[in-house]
Simulated assay, not measured.
Amino acid sequence: MRILIPDAQFLDDAEIERAAAGAGVTFEVHRATRETEVPEESWRACDAVICYHVIQYRGPWLDWLERCKVIVRAGVGFDNIDVDMAAARGIPVCNVPDYGTTDVADHAIAMMMTLTRGVASYDEHLRADPVGGWRFEKPPLVRRMRGLTFGVVGLGRIGTAAALRARAFGMDVLFYDPALPTGTELSFGFQRTNSLADLMSRSDIVSLHCPLTGTTRGMINAEALAAAKPGQILVNTARGAVVDLDALHAALKDGKLGGAALDVLPVEPAEPDHPLIRAWAAREPWIAGRLLLSPHAAFYSPSSIVDLRRKSAETAIAALAGAPINRVNDARVKA
């Protein structure tokens, strides 16, 4: 069996993947940024593809996958893959939804706490002036966590993990997830809301944990932010395009939103000329202590990378054995 990794995000020769797959499996590793940088014969000869986020897996070149029995997205999100087009060609698409669950949930809570306890602001003020910056009231968003309401958009694996962490701080938990079966909330004691506007109007913190789909793209827009509870903090560790960055800029600038913590952006790396990014980078007074950024790193820890690579290989092998797991389309395995 031949497994192709076109856009590998590691430096070794698939050592973890080879160990997970066992004997009889050949790995071909590339670090391409476009599908055309991988030889056509490699696409045609592979039995499985393990892909990352760099290449867009869509278009007629999918016809080259004439032997391929599965595409495994090494990650949770699969918006860079045309899953319907793959299904039409009889190729299941599978993801790896559980490799970084705790890491992303931890990161979301860490970003929330950094703002609500003023950690980064204190450090910045003291670095600038160790004596004059010795003032507890400097950060603008410090508040007591107990009794606040933590709103979750998307109560899947990561959303649930984040919600459980928030509840450990004594916060009340609301969630909005129209895809979740009725009654799920009873298992955790969380409160369901039936609309995004309702969740936005009642939550002190809103943490996004939804996939990027046609429905969720730009979901946090001017209308959604207009419904936000005054002083609300928005945390996004999901997908950048879920949030309309122009609308977020306006909501922060006019004071409707208290703050935001973004691990993901609609364009990555950040666009330096976007008004919000420009104001943040220039440390303009109105945004000081109210915007926190990290470089799409919520998933990352050395342990999570090992899990991701191992589970990706195991998922490919399972599909090649005729039992695909974590399938995100309804294609049948090729005979």
Rank of each mutant, 00 (worst) to 15 (best):
D123H: 12
D123V: 04
D123S: 12
E124D: 06
E124V: 14
E124Q: 10
H125A: 11
H125G: 01
H125N: 04
H125P: 01
H125F: 06
H125M: 09
H125S: 06
L126T: 06
L126N: 02
L126M: 09
L126P: 11
L126S: 00
L126A: 06
L126Q: 01
R127Q: 14
R127N: 10
R127G: 13
R127I: 02
R127L: 12
R127A: 08
A128T: 10
A128Y: 00
D129P: 05
D129V: 05
D129Q: 11
D129T: 13
D129L: 14
D129R: 15
P130Q: 04
P130D: 01
P130R: 12
P130I: 04
P130W: 05
P130C: 02
P130F: 03
V131A: 15
V131Q: 14
V131N: 05
V131L: 15
V131T: 09
V131P: 10
G132Y: 04
G132E: 12
G132Q: 08
G132M: 09
G132N: 11
G133A: 09
G133V: 02
G133M: 00
W134F: 15
W134M: 13
W134H: 07
W134G: 03
W134L: 12
W134V: 12
R135A: 04
R135W: 00
R135S: 00
R135T: 02
R135Q: 15
F136K: 06
F136Y: 11
F136W: 04
F136R: 09
F136N: 06
E137A: 13
E137Q: 09
E137T: 11
E137F: 06
E137L: 14
E137Y: 15
E137R: 08
K138E: 04
K138G: 05
K138M: 00
K138Q: 10
K138Y: 12
K138N: 04
P139L: 15
P139T: 15
P139N: 13
P139K: 14
P139D: 10
P140Q: 15
P140S: 10
P140A: 13
P140V: 10
P140W: 01
P140H: 12
L141Y: 02
L141E: 02
L141I: 01
L141A: 03
L141S: 11
V142A: 03
V142Y: 01
V142N: 03
V142C: 12
V142Q: 05
R143E: 04
R143M: 07
R143L: 13
R143K: 12
R143Q: 11
R144C: 15
R144F: 11
R144V: 08
R144K: 10
R144W: 12
R144P: 07
R144Q: 15
R144E: 15
R144G: 14
M145Q: 07
M145R: 02
M145E: 11
R146P: 06
R146L: 06
R146Y: 07
R146C: 14
G147C: 13
G147K: 07
L148D: 07
L148A: 14
L148G: 03
L148R: 07
T149F: 03
T149K: 03
T149C: 06
T149P: 01
T149D: 01
F150D: 02
F150T: 03
F150Y: 14
F150C: 07
F150H: 08
F150L: 07
G151Q: 03
G151F: 02
G151T: 03
G151M: 08
G151R: 00
G151A: 07
V152F: 02
V152S: 05
V152Q: 05
V152K: 05
V152R: 03
